[in-house]
Design a protein around this nucleic acid. Structure first.
Lengths: 198, 198, 198, 198
DNA sequence: ACGTAAGCGAGACGGTACGTCCTGTCTTCAC
DNA sequence: GTGAAGACAGGACGTACCGTCTCGCTTACGT
């Protein structure tokens, strides 16, 4: 009844994930149907339904599989430079139609399926955010960040605006914008003025 | 050929928008189909297609119609208190299943339709953001905000994290969280330390 | 909810019935699927399901529509000759691959669906049998048939063996066979020997 | 490659045939699928395909295996009584839902598979018909039947109408009907009136 | 006696068809 | 002459079986 992972055909699995990504980047979200994925992958629909809950789960796996990106942040000692680099990379990702299409797709699926949303958070989002958080912890210990700064919120202070602007198109999403967000955020968490040793 | 707005049946229009909202809050996004809306509104499908581009446009109109909320921000003189109130209201909105459902729905539609996205930005998002921006301008003139603060980015610094957390479920979305974001943002834009009159 | 026959598209109806018959005669029973019928007829599957209960009902209609054959039997005055002609025609029908295919198909459907079986009996079978029965009644009044002959059973005595042999392939189905059945049947219902006027 | 009958698992064979019959009588023809048979028999699907050509072959074997009925006809000396008994038994078989279901099923399979049809004729039908034919031959030698009667056709004259009526539901299938058919048939083959020694 | 080749239960696989649902267009009828 | 009602072509959904194909496991030969 329940499928046995041991017997799973790795070749089919890869073909399915690849087909999903290709459809997404070549023909857009609306072209990503289970039937199209199955046809392009040369696979029976049942093979998809046997291993995934639906379209969203396939897309998630495709992303998690094909995008096991760099999770370690640069640490040049210059926090501002490091954060700018990360946020500029994120801007570039949003600007790339291919990468953007996958993000758009997984976001749609996320919005319509709570269970999927949890998995996206844990498998795609958290690792990225944690990498930034770790860099901030290092900076805090180096005295570059106020010791009482709520780092989780700070991380979202960095990414939230980018995501917001991408999603809602409230203005251009440029490197300058990313730099501006970094500057604002750093202004918020830089140790208070200590002139006169007060 | 082209519909003449003058002849439009206001009763049908209201029934359609109401039906869309009810379906959304009662049965969830997946239950919102043109057929269901038409059936519940006691309307022919053609009447919907005649006046709207599709499901997304109907939902947008439904929101813009039924949620002509307060756009004027409070101005108690206390910027921190005012912003906290606004962000707490936003948190409350995200927490309310009904309001949240509509936001979720319009976000999905937005992601799949660029033209709709522009309208959502102009008709729903911008007014809200501009209200906050206006309040910040007042504060800047009152010297409570650094004169060089990029207010558009500051607004997004406030709402971005909330939206991000709601969308991606990266932690609880509480009043405390909203307060924390306000505090961080204010720390970023408060005039620099001027001890000793420097 | 329930479809309104008044709005039915006659063109689609004919296309569907034609497609079903063509598939049946060209590619055989196993090729007759709802999908294939819809595709060949250039019709949505729903249009088939809206008006028919399933494949069997379509085939029945196709037959009843395209085969409104001669229901009047010849009456040359020679009962034996008339019956031979009818049974030979039946044999020819069974021998024709095209007609045979449709009969085979409707028989399969009949066996799997009681409701359909009733309709086949009433719309296809009964008229044919009644025509023969009517001829027998004429003969009976003419004194060519024993007055106490159970005509319904006699009719089945004529067709039953043909059907039986066709279905179960118990020997060749030829004109001679048909003639033999007619002769046997007539032997059974010819008025008793009245030599000597007894 | 070709399976070796010597190694065949008799236990599985019986389980498969039993499962097929049970499904047929308990859940109807549409429930008889290779998958269901395999599942109920606790057997792999391949074990079925290794030994049978398909569903029809399994059903045929199940019938031939579990219904090796009496093939010898009674011979009380009274031909009419003997034939009535046989035809009444046939009527009873058609009336029994369980037996009827199997007959229905094998008939469907027969109609869609010529090779199977031949086997059904040889293994199920012929023995039964031949038994009746043998009885008729005895009667012919005893002078109870015209010497020129075509016995094969006579046998079909007996069974054809029953089969016809069962299949096409053209009226009730009762003992009276069976008796009527026997009477008609006997009327057809009884030696001609020989009054006056003509 | 022991390896090896078969049959076996199990079930994943590429497919086909099912019957349902929805889309966006087109048609009809009643007001 | 508009608009409700809904039929239409099309196409994706998720399910059920098909017949084939591996898997390990057991079982019975043949050396």
């Amino acid at each position: 009844m329940t499928p046995q992972p041991a017997r799973r055909n790795e070749q089919s699995r890869r073909a399915i994930l690849t087909a999903a990504l290709e459809l997404l980047t070549e023909a857009g979200y609306s072209a990503v149907t289970i039937e199209a994925i199955a046809a392009r992958a040369g696979v029976g629909k049942q093979t998809i339904y046997r291993w995934w809950r639906g379209k969203g789960a396939v897309i998630l796996d495709a992303l998690a599989d094909n995008v096991p990106e760099v999770l370690a942040l640069p640490d040049t000692g210059d926090l501002r430079a490091d954060l700018r680099q990360v946020l500029r990379a994120t801007v570039a990702e949003f600007a790339d139609p291919r990468l953007s299409a996958t993000t758009r797709a997984i976001t749609i699926e996320t919005l319509a399926d709570d269970e999927l949303a949890d998995q996206v958070r844990d498998r795609l989002l958290r690792p990225q955010l944690n990498a930034v958080r770790t860099r901030l912890e290092v900076a805090r210990e180096a005295g570059q960040v106020r010791p009482d700064a709520p780092l989780d919120q700070v991380v979202e202070l960095l990414f939230g605006p980018l995501y917001h602007r991408w999603l809602l198109r409230n203005g251009p999403l440029t490197d300058d914008y990313a730099d501006g967000i970094v500057d604002l955020t750093l202004a918020a968490i830089t140790p208070p003025c200590t002139c006169l040793g007060i």
